[in-house]
Amino acid sequence: MHKVNTPCHPWPIESRSPGDSPAIALMLCPERGNLRAQPAPRIGVDGSYLPGSTQPIRVCEEAEVRFPLEDMFAKIRAFGRAHVQSP
């Protein structure tokens, strides 16, 4: 993850995005994020954002990163227990 994020953040940062995991976690458990509604933007012919449409979207301001990480570690632990061989 460090290698992938370093071009964007060459200095030490508090967290690094593990891909789309935060978005998936919010789909599974939306109360784990700070969400707000706003009109969806429109896309101009040049690819720029134009003032919003009448269709609302939810924008995530913050996401609790502990939730997807705890889930990942629980799954790794369960997998390890299921595949441990007795001596």
Rank of each mutant, 00 (worst) to 15 (best):
Q85C: 12
P12T: 08
P12N: 11
Q85F: 10
N34F: 09
E31P: 02
I43L: 14
P56A: 06
R32F: 06
R77W: 09
R81F: 05
F79P: 01
S86W: 06
G33C: 03
V59Q: 09
N5D: 14
E70R: 15
R66V: 07
N5L: 15
I13E: 12
I57E: 11
P56E: 11
A25I: 04
H83P: 04
F73M: 09
G33M: 05
S21L: 15
P51E: 13
F67Y: 15
H9C: 13
G33S: 09
I13H: 09
L28R: 00
R58D: 02
A40F: 05
P39I: 06
E61A: 12
A23H: 04
M72F: 08
E64C: 13
P18S: 14
G52K: 12
D20Q: 03
L69W: 08
M27W: 04
F67N: 00
C60N: 02
A25D: 08
K75L: 10
H9I: 11
S21M: 15
G47T: 08
V84C: 06
P39C: 07
A78M: 07
E62H: 15
M72Y: 01
P22W: 10
S15R: 12
T54R: 15
P68V: 00
A40K: 14
R77C: 05
Y49N: 10
P87K: 06
I76A: 03
G44M: 02
D71K: 06
W11Y: 12
R77F: 07
P87A: 13
R16I: 15
L35Q: 07
A37N: 09
E64D: 14
S21A: 15
C60Q: 04
A78T: 07
G19T: 09
P12I: 08
V45N: 12
V59G: 03
A23Y: 08
V4Y: 05
P22L: 11
I43P: 02
R36N: 01
R32C: 10
R36Y: 13
T6K: 05
G47E: 03
V45D: 15
D20T: 13
G47Y: 01
A63W: 04
R58P: 00
G80A: 07
I13N: 08
P68E: 07
E61S: 08
P30I: 06
S86M: 09
S17T: 13
V4P: 00
N34M: 12
P18I: 06
N5G: 08
P51M: 05
Q85M: 14
Y49H: 10
K75M: 12
P41H: 03
Q85A: 15
R16Y: 05
A82T: 05
